[in-house]
Design a protein around this nucleic acid. Structure first.
Length: 891
RNA sequence: GGGCGGCUAGCUCAGCUGGUUAGAGCACUUGCUUGACAUGCAAGAGGUCACUGGUUCGAGUCCAGUGUCGCCCACCA
């Protein structure tokens, strides 16, 4: 097959190229690891952070997929035993939130459908979004092993959840108990501390009077204690008033009783160190069931705890006339009533910290209830030690401190959720109140304590926090609790790559549960990427309307361009702004590759003769550049320095391959006297180097490189080493540099640059051919230039080109060209003595300054104190400058 | 209230364990229908590396402090 010009449009059009490539990859079966690992192969495993099945992928997902895909494609090409396992997360609370909204639009609700129909509806919704997420990953080019696709609600995960929980229970690390927890009245569930988002808000601080009990036990209208509160509606739950023990104002009151307004309950006035005398009135109402501080005080003083809010945050019976009111309506009503009674002393604006539900934004209510908890302290200690002792490394490094701080101050994890969509906690209650935890799908056969039969047991209705199943992800996906082949082969995994936002939510939990269940850290490296922000640095959000759909962007510029834009110049842990300019940069680079390929494919001599002769200098040079780039790219990819790899690849392609190598190759290909064999030799060099370049670029630009590779393979399989699919080609290794070729080309490049520079300075258009006379500085340079005369001529657009013997004085007086390799003059241009002197003067000045600086440096303490090689480098540099200066001045 | 991070060219950002004259992309200036590419080519200009002090032969890089922006954690009514 030969490549027709018409097939290759001058602009890269993603829509024409990308469709079909992904299918070819999938069909090749190369996404999945081989049935058996190659003997001695290294292992590289990434378990994909499962996106929530709640909707479309956003740019953060795209970044995740790109970073991981680069790593994975690289390792696959290296021949490592590579697995990238995809999955999706059932996201219980988030999913319910989304589905509830959809149902509301349909005029239905969770309650109207009932548990069974609701869950049916949820599965249907999940199936749709799961497919969509799969399709989206394909567009991104994510080379995930779809044969191992997992879901956090599939049977395997369900079993892992049961077994893990049973294991925790048996170890005494899971328990059920009464405690104050965060309650979202809208989601109607408990949430963890992490899902309770604190922010500073302005509310009110009211000062209200609690009258003291008189001698007759009735409220004494003349005596009262004033308390400051932000939550007057909770007075019905008060069980004490507290003051500081040293507060003189209140000392006489301690031990007496205050009477709550409206309901007349008598509560003790107690003293507690925790009260801040300077705040408010110095007296605090204590509401143990609705405030974390007060809860602690109540425990210490053995105060009763009275709940006065129901699950919808409405006041209960205990609130007397206010019962049934919403908490905020009740607040207003209570304040109004107190004012009417003359017991409201003041109201003023107050800055305070409010907790809101991460999911729905509703103000979270502390609520006293019986809950399931995991005692995480012992797990956290191990997870922290793993990182401290380097068995797991976090990138960037400074997140280690953040992780450590969290692990050190960790609270028990409230794992129960009063939701429907999720894994039900595998605990059963018998009528006598015994608890049996079972990891059998069908539940226990009998009560573990009293032996009552299964039919008398009732399963817990609470489900698990969605992060519980996510915490098992690195091994539940590989078949745990069974000792599967995959588990043995791929656990522990290599890199956990995810957003730093979920370090606590997820990474920390995987570390704790991974160590607990498997005894081995789930991954050796945690690579945390930053947020993708809009061009103004704002977080993307639907409400701001600044969300960018990755797929729309791909429609516009192609998947490779987006990948380049997201990955280039992006370092771990740092947020980045995605700008149009950056995306355009990616598009331009894709196009550049496309066009370089057009040139290479279109310049194949037809027929292609048997190559003859030795590799030309440009070919040797590009081979050496490729070798150097491959060495660097390899080190960078191994070290997870993705941005550095990207710039290595970019420079190699654009600067070395396109700007210099192809330009030199053109000269050689167009040489009139070249024989078919020579021409073939040159073209093969160009094509072979392209093949090598494509391998290096493939992880970064998978689509365009695969397409070009395919076309190259079609017309010259030797350039692809007979491998039809780039993604299955080998990463280059064992390439050696050619120092001589690099030195020679840098001589020619210096000369060409010198001429171009001069030409621009003199205002001569690049299109004008000019005569050039040069005097090389030494024999080596002379030989190099002599061999590269036609290259210099063509690249610098000089003709005729005359080489004078070294030391030819005729050149010196009027010389206008000064490079490290030659001096000379460009015919007809700038030949005035003034111009020449000016140029020479400037060059001389520059050299003298450099020499002075280095002489002082080398003469000082530097010479004795600095390492020998550093000193040597400076000395060599000095000698170089001195010889240039001699040359320039003829001294 | 604790902790973390950023401050490098007009803009967005790289600069690993301190070692030549601090880099890239975009923007800017000047020229270019150069037989792959104007989504391009060539040549340029542009930085007291936030500030102060210290360590060192040598500091953008290490230490201390200051300023400023941002983030995370935290039960003060």
């Amino acid at each position: 097959m030969s490549v027709e010009r018409s097939e290759l449009a001058p602009r890269y059009a993603a829509a024409d190229v990308e469709p079909g490539i992904y299918e070819r990859w999938v069909a090749s079966g190369a996404f999945a690891p081989a049935a058996e690992p190659r003997p001695g192969a290294r292992r590289f495993v990434i378990i994909q952070p499962p996106p929530n099945v709640t909707g479309a992928l956003h740019l953060g997902h795209a970044l995740t997929a790109y970073v991981e895909d680069i790593m994975v494609r690289y390792h696959r090409m290296r021949g490592d035993d590579t697995l990238w396992l995809p999955g999706v997360d059932h996201a219980s609370i988030a999913a319910q939130f989304v589905l509830d909204r959809i149902l509301a639009e349909e005029g239905e609700s969770r309650q109207s459908l009932g548990r069974e129909r609701y869950l049916e509806r949820m599965w249907q919704f999940m199936d749709e979004t799961r497919d969509m997420i799969g399709r989206q990953h394909r567009r991104l080019g994510a080379s995930l092993d779809w044969s191992r696709l997992r879901f956090t609600m599939d049977d395997g995960s369900a079993r892992a959840v049961r077994v893990a929980f049973k294991k925790l229970w048996d170890a005494g690390l899971a328990y059920r108990g009464e405690a104050l927890v965060n309650w979202c009245p809208r989601c109607r569930t408990t949430i963890s501390d992490l899902e309770n988002i604190h922010s500073e808000e302005t509310g009110s601080l009211w000062t209200i009077r609690y009258h003291l009990a008189g001698a007759d036990g009735a409220p004494d209208p003349a005596q009262w204690v004033s308390v400051a509160t932000t939550r007057p509606e909770t007075i019905f739950g008060d069980t004490a008033v507290a003051v500081h023990p040293d507060d003189e104002r209140y000392r006489p009151l301690v031990g007496r009783e205050a009477i709550l307004p409206f309901i007349g309950r008598r509560v003790p006035i107690i003293s507690d160190e925790g009260v801040e005398p300077g705040f408010g009135t110095g007296a605090v109402k204590i509401t143990p069931a609705h405030d974390f501080d007060d809860y602690a005080v109540a425990q210490q003083h053995a105060l009763p705890m009275i709940s006065i809010l129901d699950e919808d945050a409405r006041l209960t019976e205990g609130a007397g006339e206010f019962a049934g009111m919403d908490r905020y309506d009740a607040r207003a009503a209570v304040v109004a009533a107190l004012a009417a009674m003359g017991d409201l002393e003041s109201e003023r604006p107050h800055q305070m910290v409010i907790g809101r539900c991460d999911r729905c934004g509703t103000v979270v209510e502390p609520r006293l209830s019986v809950q399931w908890f995991v005692r995480v302290k012992p797990l956290a200690d191990r997870a922290l030690a793993s990182v401290r002792e380097g068995r797991t490394q976090i990138l960037p490094d400074h997140f280690t401190k953040v992780y450590a701080h969290w692990m050190e101050n960790i609270h028990d994890w409230a794992v129960g959720r009063q939701l429907w969509w999720g894994h039900r906690i595998p605990a059963w209650y018998c009528p006598d109140g015994h608890i049996t935890v079972s990891d059998h799908e069908a539940g226990p056969e009998a009560c573990a304590t009293c032996g009552r039969s299964a039919s008398e047991l009732r399963q817990e209705t609470d489900i698990f926090d969605t992060w519980f199943s996510s915490g098992l992800w690195p091994f539940s996906t590989l078949g745990w609790p069974d000792e599967t082949a995959d588990l043995g082969r791929f656990y522990p995994t290599s890199v956990m790559e995810t957003a730093y936002e979920i370090l606590f939510f997820w990474v920390a939990r995987m570390m704790m549960l991974g160590l607990f269940c498997m005894d081995v850290e789930p991954f050796h490296t945690v690579y945390l990427h930053g947020l993708v922000r809009d061009p103004y640095g704002r977080k993307m959000s639907k409400t701001k309307g600044n969300v960018v759909d990755p797929l729309e962007m791909i429609d516009e510029v192609g998947a490779d361009a987006l990948r380049f834009a997201l990955v280039s110049g992006n370092s771990p842990g740092v947020d980045q702004r995605l700008t149009d300019a950056k995306v355009a940069g990616g598009r331009n680079f894709t196009n550049k590759l496309w066009n370089a390929a057009r040139f290479v494919l279109g310049s194949r001599p037809d027929p292609l003769a048997e190559p003859e002769g030795e590799p030309s200098l440009p070919e040797r040079w590009i081979r050496s550049r490729l070798a150097e780039a491959v060495a660097r790219a390899t080190a960078q990819l191994d070290g997870l320095e993705l941005a550095a790899y990207v710039s290595t690849a970019y420079e190699l392609a654009w600067s070395d391959y396109c700007d210099w190598f192809l330009e030199m190759a053109k000269v050689e290909l167009r040489r009139d006297d070249a024989s078919p064999g020579k021409r073939a030799r040159i073209w093969r060099g160009v094509a072979g180097a392209l093949g090598e370049l494509l391998r290096i670029l493939h992880p970064l630009m998978p689509f365009v490189t695969e397409e070009i590779w395919g076309r190259l393979h079609a017309i010259d399989p030797s350039s692809t080493h007979g491998e039809p699919l780039l993604m299955s080609a080998a990463w280059p290794t064992g390439r050696t540099r050619d120092e001589a070729a690099e030195a020679d080309v840098s001589v020619l490049v210096a000369l060409v640059r010198g001429v171009r520079n001069l030409r621009t300075e003199a205002g001569v258009p690049a299109s004008t051919w000019l005569p050039l006379t040069i005097v090389p500085t030494d024999a080596t340079a002379r030989a190099t230039i002599e061999h590269g005369l036609d290259l210099v001529g063509a690249l610098a657009r000089v003709r005729p080109l005359e080489l004078r013997p070294a030391g030819d004085d005729a050149a010196r007086p009027e010389s206008v060209l000064s490079t490290p390799v030659a001096i000379g003059w460009l015919g007809e241009v700038g030949r005035t003595a003034a111009h020449a002197d000016e140029r020479r003067g400037a060059a001389e000045e520059h050299l003298r300054r450099g020499i002075d600086r280095l002489r002082t440096l080398v003469a000082g303490e530097f010479a004795t104190r600095a390492p020998a090689e550093v000193v040597e480098r400076e000395r060599a540099r000095l000698a170089e400058l001195e010889s240039e200066l001699r040359l320039l001045t003829g001294g």
